[in-house]
Design a protein around this nucleic acid. Structure first.
Lengths: 68, 68
DNA sequence: ACTTAATGTAAAATATATAGTACATTATGT
DNA sequence: ACATAATGTACTATATATTTTACATTAAGT
């Protein structure tokens, strides 16, 4: 999987926001947050936008793509 | 679908790049490009990054998310 | 009129993301 | 020792994205 994410860091920087709280704020289940955070799979573009929005940052500061 | 894309405009701005050429450059099929360009469905995050990369622009200048 | 390139449409098959449920582990507080 | 909150794991089911194949349409060139 060539996509990296900063979710763990962003959760801690936002007052140690729990996975559950993030999931509710994003509108997905906790399992989805866990899987994405652990890079088990990459999110849909819509989920990626919603997660970035939940942190109030641009998408590309949450998810980065390693070319090649 | 709350996600808009600028693929059609970017193709034309890049020397009227065809859907086929874009598909090959991105590494997906022509059908995938057609479907995404026509907003039949939103791409995966990985496909979105690859499309932006094919145009040499940031992801968020190809795909925009309308909140709400 | 014919050919070719580009785009569009449709349907089935496969891959991937997400939801749902259930249980295990670890740390914290009482 | 017990209860609770947070995280992790596993497995099935559902939704969605992508591929594959095939054919239709439109415009451009000869």
């Amino acid at each position: 999987m060539a996509i990296e994410n900063e979710i763990r860091r962003l959760r801690f920087e936002n007052g140690e926001m729990t996975q559950q709280a993030l999931a509710e704020s994003v509108g997905v289940t906790r399992q989805t947050i866990i899987a994405i955070e652990q890079n088990k799979y990459a999110p849909s573009l819509e989920a990626a936008f919603k997660i970035a929005n939940a942190f109030g940052v641009p998408l590309e500061s949450v998810f980065r793509w390693r070319n090649g």
